[in-house]
Amino acid sequence: MNRTFSRESRQLARTAARWLALLDSGRASADDLQRLQCWRAASPQHEQIWQRAEGLRQRFQEVPPSLAMASLDRPEPNRRTLLKRGLMVAVLLPAGWLLSQQTPLQALRADLRTAVGERRGVRLADGSLLQLNTATAVDLDLVHQRLTLVEGEIALNVSRAQALHVELGMARVSVGQAQVCLRRDAEQCRIGVLHGSVQVRPRHGAALALQAGDQLTISADGSGAMDRFDPHQPDWRDGVLSVNDQPLGQFLRELSRYRPGWLRWEPALESLKVTGTFRLDDTDRVLTLLAASLPLAVQARSRYRITLVPWQKAA
């Protein structure tokens, strides 16, 4: 920073610095040391800056040399490069190292992503368990104890009391010693609490605490709705979708999150009721099961273009 210093303090710092440089050279004579003692004794300001200088050297003594050297002597991109667009991509750690599922996640900063139909679990460095559901993107920044759910759905189990903060766009959630399910798409975000309690700070409106069993949905317009959290909702972690008397339309919307391509159905089917537990890694089979138990037929133009129609139309 461009601070301005008085001429005296500059002069003082310069004199002390020269003494220090002489001492470090290992070539200070007994005579030099005698003169240094005199200089220190000559005024309280001299002694004061000398104490600070000693403190300064102490600070460098206290850090582990190899870690400090690697961090402080890193190659520094110049200012011009820093101000260019999209630099952060270059600063990310190698993905293979980050995403290893066997070892605990050493990395403290990462971008995690799952494809449609994919699920993944990662153990974070602080011991928390993070699970990503289908089509989910997460920015992880454990240096600052925070995580951004960019889109999709995660389950988070934080055992430590120190909270992990999750950004959902429409709200921030602080999770410590709790288990939550979080979901975010363009229209809304949803916070469901399995165990413990969490703090929610909506972008618009007052902060609130949610307890186990609570579910809060916040829409892009800022409105919020409280419900009971469906205990079967996090079943996706075990690779299943469990529903009880759910309208078919709602079920299919949920199912299509796990399928690439599009899935359509005639409006007449919307309110048929579905009950059962379905395996998420074989959604083709789920559709076959639906066709077997409900009055509907599956019309597939390809695996990725599927329409469900009522029986009478299919005939």
């Binding site: 190899s66 870690l67 690697a70 961090s71 402080l72 890193r74 520094e76 991109p77 200012r79 820093l82 101000l83 630099l87 952060m88 600063v91 750690l93 190292w97 050493q106 990395a107 403290l108 900063r109 240096v143």
Partner: peptide, 25 residues
């Protein structure tokens, strides 16, 4: 903003170098 951005990048690059050094310990 540019000044803060440069400082931010410096902190980040330090963090990055530090984390990599940690990982190699």
């Amino acid at each position: 903003g540019k000044r803060l951005l440069v400082n931010f990048h410096k902190r980040r690059s330090l963090e990055q170098a530090y984390l990599e050094a940690l990982a190699n310990l």
